[in-house]
Nucleic acid binder design. Structure first.
Lengths: 224, 224
DNA sequence: GAAATAGTGTCTATAAGACAGTATTTT
DNA sequence: AAAATACTGTCTTATAGACACTATTTC
């Protein structure tokens, strides 16, 4: 019994990049430039570059930078998918990440196609399973954390943020409870200015995420 | 720019095998047989065998079977650790899993050393970080799921199971609330027999996990 | 019956949700 | 002033925890 098998494993990263469009979660897809599945819509991904990447997280960040022109969106490891059949090139390990961005930040990547996660097109490899896992993870963590703020462009109002939570969770939330929770999380700080353009009603207070929570999450002990 | 780097990545699995000993979480360690770190206590792990393993989960199960004589303990993917420095052999990807077993099942593996997770010895690679991540994950999921039942040999009593939860979570639980929650989870079924040997007091009802939850978790919407 | 732990009934405290009110804008 | 939405006060309901009581065993 030798260990010669190790070198034959293909190592890649894939990114499930999610955003909200018209109140629905969408995933970013790109046409593949190379075989296998050249020309087919798939998740952004690529080989780990051992020469330049500090770790797989850096590989995923590089993929997002190169293929979607995104500098530093929220990026978290999702799970690792592996096996002999998921990639026609052979036994492979794909470290999957998910990223969240406000919809507006995608304007720098005109080649990106957004597909609603509720009606995914057929995807190569096991990218369909990756998207499903990412959506389940995001929905789950949104029940008790500040994760959805990363889908919201700053500054934002509390009604806007509540709408984002409701879109991700797929259910309406109690306004009083939502605001109580946001208060307890100590996640946001108000900006002296207000939102006015909206229309014929009282303007809403604008908020931004407090610096300590810009790159980590705020957790609520009992959910919401 | 070529993709030649992919083949140079080392692919391994490591398993954080946890059990309860005297009310404290312990991790199973083994002396390494080979370089690097030959003779040093480390997590059970090894190369992915592309010829025989159906995926990385199967690799981890094989490692547990070969090195700890465990047939099918609870086994869940934890996270993937990667980078150029974690393994002296070069840029590596280690898919880490965690496993839970009742303490009694470890008797078949006399070479296993149990170390309390609260006072870990120095560990090679990034195995220390893996153990910390596994303990954090287990503590977190134990707050709202049936995960700790996998640390408990069947059949067991409710006071025994509560003690396991308390050991994992590190805090006492309310007896009435605990039993209410266990009832709501519909996780357990009583056995006609009872526990008696214990001692000078009323015997406790024995339970086992209901079949649908033997390999998956039961989740409580609001924790506990 | 004393001691010990199992199991339960019930009250209290806390958290979540419903509802309705006030506030501030545009037309 | 009417309409629209932001925000808040307060009551009701649901859940979690405290406490005490009963139950069943050994010595």
């Amino acid at each position: 019994m030798t260990s010669s098998s190790a070198a034959s494993v293909i190592c890649t990263v894939d990114v499930v990049l999610l955003t909200l469009q018209q109140g629905e979660l969408h995933v970013a897809l790109l046409r593949r430039e190379r075989a296998p599945f050249a020309g087919v819509l798939a998740l952004p991904g690529g080989y780990i570059h051992a020469q330049e990447d500090a770790d797989a997280h850096a590989s995923a960040a590089r993929v997002l930078r190169d293929k979607a022109a995104l500098q530093s969106p929220y990026l978290e490891q999702l799970a690792t998918f592996s096996g002999p059949a998921r990639d026609p090139r052979g036994w492979s390990v794909a470290v999957a990440y998910f990223a969240l961005v406000p919809h507006g930040l995608l304007s720098g990547a005109p080649l990106v196609t957004l597909a609603p996660v509720a009606q995914l097109p057929p995807l190569p490899f096991d990218h369909g399973a990756m998207v499903e896992a990412a959506v389940a993870r995001v929905r789950s963590k949104s029940q008790y954390s500040s994760l959805p703020v990363h889908l919201c462009a700053e500054p934002f109002t509390l009604p806007q943020l509540q709408a984002v939570y409701e879109a991700v969770l797929g259910e309406p939330l109690n306004k009083v409870s939502f605001r109580r929770k946001m208060d307890e999380l100590e996640l946001l700080e108000p900006l002296p200015g207000e939102l006015q353009t909206g229309g014929a009603h009282r303007p809403a207070q604008l908020y931004r995420v407090r610096p300590p929570y810009r790159r980590c999450l705020s957790l609520s002990p009992r959910g919401l």
